[in-house]
Structure formats: structure tokens, C-alpha cells
Design a protein around this nucleic acid. Sequence first.
DNA 1: ACACATTGTTTCCATATTGTATACAATTTG
DNA 2: CAAATTGTATACAATATGGAAACAATGTGT
Lengths: 301, 301
Amino acid sequence: MDKLTSMNVFVRVAKAGSFAGAAKDLDISRAMATKHIMQLENELNTRLFNRTTRSLSLTEAGEEYLDRCQQVLLDVEEMESAVTKLQTEPRGTLKICAPPVIGATHISPAMTEYLKSYPDLSVEMVLKGGQVDLIDEGVDIAIYLGHLNDTSLVARKIATSSLVVCASPEYLKLHGTPQDPEDLIEHSCLINWAIPPRNKWRFKGILGERTVTVTGRMQANMADPIRNAAVNGLGVIMLPHYIVGRDIEMGRLQVIMEQYGIAPLEIYAVYPHRKYLSAKVRSFLDFIQAWLPHRIGMNPP
Amino acid sequence: MDKLTSMNVFVRVAKAGSFAGAAKDLDISRAMATKHIMQLENELNTRLFNRTTRSLSLTEAGEEYLDRCQQVLLDVEEMESAVTKLQTEPRGTLKICAPPVIGATHISPAMTEYLKSYPDLSVEMVLKGGQVDLIDEGVDIAIYLGHLNDTSLVARKIATSSLVVCASPEYLKLHGTPQDPEDLIEHSCLINWAIPPRNKWRFKGILGERTVTVTGRMQANMADPIRNAAVNGLGVIMLPHYIVGRDIEMGRLQVIMEQYGIAPLEIYAVYPHRKYLSAKVRSFLDFIQAWLPHRIGMNPP
DNA sequence: ACACATTGTTTCCATATTGTATACAATTTG
DNA sequence: CAAATTGTATACAATATGGAAACAATGTGT
């Protein structure tokens, strides 16, 4: 009895929640399904399912076995396609993590576009900011803003977005329009800690570079509240163009200090450093790297 | 034909360098060995061995297949023992990387002691300083000195060693004995870039902490040349006790500024962040953490 | 509450596969 | 150049595989 086959049957039974369902999926008899599972249980000397003739649930051991089985099966598949040099299609589940705004506005549309090409692939998106433990959470790819100094994660720059300083017209009318970086010290600058450059805003003018440590009436770890506050006249913000572009078009926000250069925000795709990269990860990285720069209104990196 | 069995046969054949040898190891007939390999080759549509009736060599595809096969087989074994809750003995090969001096003087003896308990385990030691790419090099555990800021590697503090400032008696007679941290600026301080605190020596005296940036006539990326130079009167060094302890005992070096406190050197074992830690890694970490602090002459962390 | 349908399991059996023994050709070694 | 050893091919016995049908257990619908 091929153990890998049995493992596969096990995974399918666990997913289907029934022997009969899995048997139909795999096009085998119900009898064989039980035999495979029994074989595994005998070899492991461990019950994998709690079954009362009518309902199925994984035991604790079964839960762990399932998790690892899937990994092993994927590894084997990867291995075989790598050796056969058959560039197999991405398949399985791609779990991706991104900051909320860019995730919702850009990564997610990219995802749906990407999925069209690969019917055997499904995707799981987690939108949250800050550092994520890729391994523990089983994340395949994370999107990070700005540089990340972590040697055992691999980061690939997939796009850049220009940073713009802006405020609502009302605010500027009330407090005046800052002309120089130093003027910002007197202003209320709203800070998003999740997006570089945080509270150290660096400008490149005719006279060289200048960095201003700004403060203000509001800080947050997400871009949306900050953007909103700025629209409502609470202060000056420095955010990537992809977040405030629309507000600027609509006149809700007004760009200031355009004469100064600001190093653009760099957007990275980050993935765990593995010896062999799975097809789905490699493929999506290539895709997003080609797709994103155009949509985000900037040149490719 | 059980594919995992076939994979195992393949690995054994590759290692033995012959079908007959592997067959004897596995206690099967030579005929079966060929059948297993042919089965794999047929499924993969790829030749794994170049065989001229009398000699064997892996094809390029075979090389890669071997590498991955071993990983998969280990994973499966790990999985089964994890699920069975049988704490299986460490087995396979443990590849460990350590800075040269501590590697030769402490890790290596620990290793031989440790190996006694586990007959199925073999070890591969790489002695080199600096950062190592654990994944690419297939290293299971690396020993680092001082703090490491890499979020996706896990670091466990396994010992500390006090740092001592010392110089040869001849040097001190010739240049005088420094009494205060500031005196060091006038002295030749030999720096080892591989061991913190490098050229920023921090002392804790009655009057608080003081950090001195030292310079001197020699720098190196390994402790030995520095130690040697100091013994030969080239200057003052700050090195962990486990390196210079013997020289101090023998009178070749003389400790100075003992009245100042120096934060001890922290010794870490670092391993890749994986969801499931293999028995051999977990077990060795526990061992070294219990073993090293006593031998290195310091309290456990 | 009760018949029914569906589920997981067991039994039986034809078929396919596995593994060994043996024979054979090719090649190295003494 | 003989002898031993290697990888492979063939034949055959033992075993395992997989499906059909029977069976027992449990929800479900009326």
C-alpha cells in the first residue's frame, strides 16, 4: 500500500469530512478509503479520526498529521516537477499578507487577475500591518513597505510609490502653507508608524538633504485614519501616492512642497528563505512585479 | 510499489554507490533494487543514474532528486514520530557552524560527548566566523557571539563568558598599566571584529557607564591572531575569558582594570525558524545549553 | 416515533503486484 | 585470462490490492 497515496487519501478525507465524499473525489471505492486510513492508523498506532459511524472529526494527532502530510505531499510534488523539469502550474493555496490599504486597493485586484491563469490555485489573504511571523502563520509571501533588515528572509522590490506631502485646503488656509521643510516643525504632522518614513521626513532640495523630525496631533499604525484626519483638516501628512492620489484629484487634499524631492516609498515582497522555492511563490512574485508598478502609477523598480 | 520505499532505496543506492551494496544494506535482493530504481525512473521519465554495467554515478537530475529525497524522508520520519509521540532519538546528520576558537575549544568537545549518546547521529562541523546563510549551506545550528537581530532566525542564549581586558606583562612594563577606561585611548588596543564589543569597549565603574572607542596596531576577524599579538606584547585586548583564561593562568597575559565591570559576552545558538523543530536540533540545543555554561567557567544564562 | 437513506466497515474474490531465486551478460581484479 | 562481482532479465510463488456486495450503525425527514 503506497504510503504517499494513503496520506493523500487521508488529506482528502479530512478535507471532505467524510470517507464517502473523499472516495468519490478520488474515484475509488469507499472500502479502499477505509483501508488506507486503517493502514495509516495501524502503522502509527494512533487513531487519526474520531468516528461515530455517522460523523467524522480529526483527533489531536490527526490535526498535526494533516498539517504535516500536506506539506510532505506538496514537497514531493515540487520535487518531482523540479526533477522532471516540467514547469508545473502553481497549485495549492497561496497565503499572502499585506498592509491593509495596499492590500485592499492593489494586491487584492492583482490576486484576482492572477488567479484567472491558474485554476488549481486558491489564495488566502491576510490584511494586517507590522511585522508578521511568516513561518508560524504559514504565510508564503508578505508585502512590506520600506526596507526590511532581516537576513534570512528574502525581499524582492516589486514597486515604488512616490511620497507626497499634503493637507486639506481648509487646513492650509487656516495655518498657512509651509514652504520649507523646517516650517513643518510648526505644523501638526500626522504620522503613520506603519509606513516609512514615519516621523523622520527627509527632503532633497537645492541646498542638499534635510531631515525633519515632525510631530503632530495624531498618530496611528494604519494609513486610513491618518488620511481621513488630514482630509478633515487635522494636519499635514506624508503618504504614498497610491493612498492619497484620489483625494488629490478630487481636491480634498492639496500637495505642498512639490519643489522638494522625496525618496519614494519602496514596496517589497518578502518570503521565507528556503532552499527550493515553490512554483506558486516564484510565479506570483514574477506576476506582481510585472503588474504592480504600472497600476501604482510608478515606473518598475 | 511504495514510493517512499523506492525513494529510500534510491538514497541508499546513491550513498553506497552500487545496487548490490544497497541491497545488502537493506536486506533485499539485487533484483528488487533495480526494480525500485526503474520504477522511479519510469514515473519521473528521467534517468537518475548513469550506469555502465560496472560503475554508477548520479545524473544531474539524480543529484537534485537525492537532495530532496533525503529531506522528504526525514520529514516523514519526523512527522511520524511526532504524531506517535514517540520521542525518537536524534538521527541523521547535524550540521553545525561555529566561530573557530570556541568551536575548536568548546563546541567540538561538547559534540563528541553528545555523539556518545546517539549512535545514529553523525555531525558535520564548519568552523568559520561571521554571518552564515543557514539555509543555503544547510546548517542546522550556528553559534553566534553577541546579539543577533534577525527575526526569522531563532536564537537561544546558551552561555555567557566574562570579558577581560589584558595585556602581556612586558607591554605593561613598557607602556604603563592603564587605570581608567580613558587611558586606553593612548594605548594600542587590538581589535577582533568577530567578537563583540569590537572597538567600542564599555565599562561600568563607580561613576556610571563609560564607552571608549579604542584603536590600535592590529585588527583581525579572528581571535587567535589577536590573542597571539597580545601575548607578544603588541597591545591591550578585550577577549572572552574562555580564550585568554589559559594565558592568564600561565602568566603570559595580565588582567587589568579588574575594578571595572564589563557586560559579559553572550553566546547564542541560532537555528532557522521552522514550524517543526527536528529532534536532533532540539536535543542538541538542550544538551549544549546544559553543557557549555559549566565548561566555559560561567554561570548558566 | 419510525422507516429510510446514507455512512463506515467487513467479507469475498479475481487480479495485479511484489519479492526471491535463478540465469545471464558485462566488466573489473588478481 | 580466469574468477568474482555487478546490473539486469525471467519465472514463479506469495502476497497485496481494489471493487462489489452485504452488513451494521447512525442521523434525517415525515
